[in-house]
């Protein structure tokens, strides 16, 4: 197993790519802190099933990433366990329907940046302290193909591009601690978030896609497992595009 004995912290686990990452990483032997916005009976059962199936610990942590105090409290809850964190997957994100900047309230931009950029940065600042102590670790950020091609609305495209700058800088800062930092830039993926994309935008994306289909969450999760594992031990500061080949 690629992640046996490791502990992962994964944000935005209740569905989509985050849930797939949780499934794949536990299947590879990692225990996990699964961050979700609120308690949910079905997800609780899902975590218990993963725990039993793979013989790992899956602990839920609740936090609303729109609220910085909640982000700090969640990080402290995890750090208080004194468990060494090996992997951090910053997956949480929010997207709104496509619209022009001219029709986008700045409040929406700020809200998007709070969740997609600032809270993830704060959470990483706190959780990476555990990795620094262990002098090893792998941090994976979920960016987007929109960071390269502007394929989503302005706040999402800009926020996901900001994440790439963060990844480059963090790789430099944390390299001395043996911590690798990389990003995944998925293309259009078959998730609830992908579901808010209009048919017109989907058709445009598919016309530029070599494989002519949306990605599956598990296909993105497999890339996260690769970046979290020692298979990618000589990679840092990189962005892996998992998008079916965008022209």
């Amino acid at each position: 197993m690629l992640l046996e004995g490791k502990t992962a912290v994964i944000t935005g686990c209740s569905r989509g790519i985050g849930k797939a990452v949780l499934n794949r990483m536990t299947a590879q032997g990692a225990s996990a802190f699964a961050l979700v916005r609120r308690e949910d009976a079905a997800f609780t059962e899902h975590c218990a099933a993963l725990s039993e199936k793979y013989g790992v610990d899956v602990r839920m942590v609740y936090a609303d990433f729109e609220n910085e105090n909640a982000v700090t409290a969640a990080a402290r809850e995890i750090l208080k366990t004194k468990e060494r964190i090996d992997i951090l997957v910053n997956n949480i994100g929010v997207a709104f329907p496509q619209r022009m900047l001219a029709m986008t309230p700045m409040e929406a931009v700020k809200r998007s940046f709070q969740i997609n950029v600032f809270s993830g940065m704060l959470f990483t600042q706190l959780i990476s302290k555990s990795m620094m102590r262990g002098r090893r670790g792998s941090i994976v950020f979920l960016s987007s193909s929109a960071a390269f091609d502007g394929g989503a609305n302005i706040e999402y495209s800009a926020g996901k591009a900001a994440v790439l700058g963060e990844v480059r800088r963090l790789a430099v800062e944390l390299g001395g601690f043996g911590i690798r930092v990389n990003a995944i830039a998925p293309g259009l993926t078959d998730t609830d978030m992908g579901g808010i994309t209009s048919e017109e935008v989907k058709a445009a994306a598919m016309s530029r896609n070599i494989m002519k289909r949306m990605g599956e969450p598990e296909e993105i999760a497999d890339a996260a497992v690769f970046l979290a594992s020692d298979l990618s031990r000589f990679m840092t500061g990189q962005t892996l595009r998992v998008d079916g080949g965008l022209l």
Binding site: K129, M132, R133, E173
Partner: peptide, 18 residues
């Protein structure tokens, strides 16, 4: 800065604080 974070980690362990 790298030494600083190492020092902080050592102090946090020594005094059981965050």
């Amino acid at each position: 800065s790298v030494g600083h974070m190492g020092l902080v980690a050592t102090l946090e362990d020594a005094f059981d604080i965050m």
